Simulated assay, not measured.
Amino acid sequence: MTAAGLHLAAPAKINLYLHIGPLRADRLHDLASLFVFAHDGDVIRVEAAKDLSLKVTGPYAPLLKDLPPEKNLVYRAAELLAREADVRAGAAITLEKHLPVAAGVGGGSADAAAALRALVKLWNVNISETALSRLAFRLGADVPACLARAPVNVSGAGERIEKGPVLPPLWIALVNPRVEMPTGPIFRAFDAANPVPHPPKLAAFRAVSYAQVKEAMGATRNDLEAFAIEKAPVIKDVLDDLAAAPGALAARMSGSGATCFALFASWAAASRATRAACARGHWAMASALHVR
Rank of each mutant, 00 (worst) to 15 (best):
K13T: 05
E162G: 08
I229G: 10
A77E: 00
D86V: 08
R292Q: 13
V120T: 07
A49W: 01
V36I: 04
A173W: 04
Y210R: 11
I186L: 05
A258F: 07
F187R: 03
L147R: 02
A265F: 10
D223V: 03
A226Y: 09
A270T: 03
G106E: 10
E215G: 11
A82P: 02
Y17S: 11
E162S: 07
V154P: 09
G257N: 13
P246Y: 13
P144V: 01
V154S: 03
E70V: 04
V36N: 00
S266E: 07
W267Q: 13
K13Y: 14
H7D: 15
K236V: 10
I229H: 12
L167H: 00
S128G: 01
G108N: 09
E215T: 12
R160G: 01
P246W: 06
Y210I: 02
Q212A: 14
L31V: 00
H29M: 12
P68E: 04
V56N: 02
P62Y: 03
P168C: 07
A204P: 08
A279L: 08
D30G: 03
A91M: 09
R160V: 11
V36F: 06
V152P: 02
L63G: 11
G158F: 00
A110L: 10
S128L: 07
A32N: 08
R27A: 12
V101W: 14
A110N: 10
N194C: 11
Y210T: 05
E159S: 00
M181E: 05
A25V: 15
M1I: 09
H290E: 15
A245K: 04
H198N: 14
Y210L: 13
A82L: 02
R221S: 15
N126D: 13
D240G: 14
A276P: 15
H290W: 12
V175G: 03
S256R: 02
S287I: 08
V56K: 00
H7A: 14
F264E: 04
A61N: 11
V179W: 03
V120E: 09
W283Y: 07
R134K: 10
T259L: 08
V234H: 12
Y17M: 01
L263K: 00
R117A: 07
H282S: 10
A12I: 06
A114P: 08
L6K: 11
W267S: 15
G281R: 10
H98T: 10
E96I: 05
C146H: 02
G107W: 07
A48T: 07
E70G: 05
V105P: 01
L8P: 05
P199T: 01
P182K: 08
G5H: 13
R292N: 13
D111G: 08
L224H: 01
L18W: 00
R188L: 14
A136R: 00
D223P: 11
A92Q: 15
I20F: 07
T57V: 13
K71F: 04
V208S: 15
